[in-house]
């Protein structure tokens, strides 16, 4: 069987990691200070590494001989399953850091739980990712605090970023048909179980940062069923350009 819930679920995790890793990699060489170039490089590498392991696993689950590159480079946007938050443009440094904080505050406890998955491969990938996401969380939380409690300008930019990105946060906690059976079987994680941890992390960091937690209004959703923002197509046109221009070549 090919398009199983487990395949879909693994792809969602993989695509989210790849798209965010790709976004962070766009900063390298363009950061405010060299140390941040190095940090973006680290975090980008972590995420791309997670994506590679997850794609390989997805390819095996699917059983059609697709490897990590076939999955990353030869699917169009409607077949991508990442959450919308991670495909949002980098914007300024505050926008990137706040996006990273919102995601890492979720991904850290999520992978902690996934490390106990009945799927041994997912569990192993998650166990490694937990350590990585702990660093992403620490780094992005420190910057969120620094920017929020820095100058008036940095405060304004951080608050703007938070307000802009807020509508994309609820998608992280959604579950659907694809995941429900997997959650019951102890393979997938129920994201609502990490909501309290996420809330607590946010409240703590935002208060230190003197930033105001936005009110929940209408929440955007759709990435995990292939309905994306306009941004993903542009990411893929860059990411996939060489593979598409030279079909069948190996690199």
């Amino acid at each position: 069987m090919t398009d199983t819930p487990l395949f879909q679920y693994t792809l969602r995790l993989a695509d989210t990691a790849l798209v965010l890793g790709h976004r962070l990699s766009e900063w390298v060489g363009h950061s405010p200070v060299i140390e941040e170039d190095l940090a973006f490089g680290n975090m980008g590498l972590d995420l791309i590494g997670q994506a590679r392991s997850l794609y390989s696993h997805a390819g095996e689950i699917e059983g059609k001989g697709r490897d990590e590159d076939a999955l990353a480079y030869l699917r169009d946007a409607p077949d991508y399953r990442n959450i919308l938050l991670v495909e949002q443009p980098n914007g300024n440094f505050a926008a990137t850091m706040v996006r990273q904080f919102l995601y890492a505050a979720f991904a850290h406890p999520y992978f902690e739980a996934l490390a106990h998955s009945k799927d041994k491969t997912l569990a192993a990938i998650a166990a490694k990712a937990v350590k990585e996401m702990a660093y992403h969380l620490r780094h992005s939380a420190e910057w969120t605090i620094r920017l929020g409690d820095g100058t008036d300008e940095s405060h304004r930019r951080a608050q703007d970023a938070l307000d802009e990105l807020w509508p994309y946060t609820a998608e992280m906690f959604e579950t659907d048909q694809v995941e429900r059976a997997l959650i019951e079987a102890g393979v997938a994680v129920d994201p609502s179980a990490v909501r309290a941890t996420w809330d607590k992390t946010l409240d703590h960091v935002l208060s230190e940062a003197t930033l105001v937690r936005p009110r929940d209004g209408y929440m955007q959703s759709g990435g995990r069923i292939g309905r994306h923002s306009e941004h993903l197509g542009h990411i893929l046109s860059e990411l996939q350009f060489v593979q598409r221009a030279y079909p069948g070549a190996s690199w």
């Binding site: 390298v28 490089g41 980008g44 791309i48 590679r52 590159d69 990411l239 690199w251």
Partner: peptide, 19 residues
Amino acid sequence: WITRAPSLKRKAALLAKVQ
């Protein structure tokens, strides 16, 4: 070329290199 590297392995290697 980081965002256009032709495979995930090359992308990771180039990112690490530039880092």
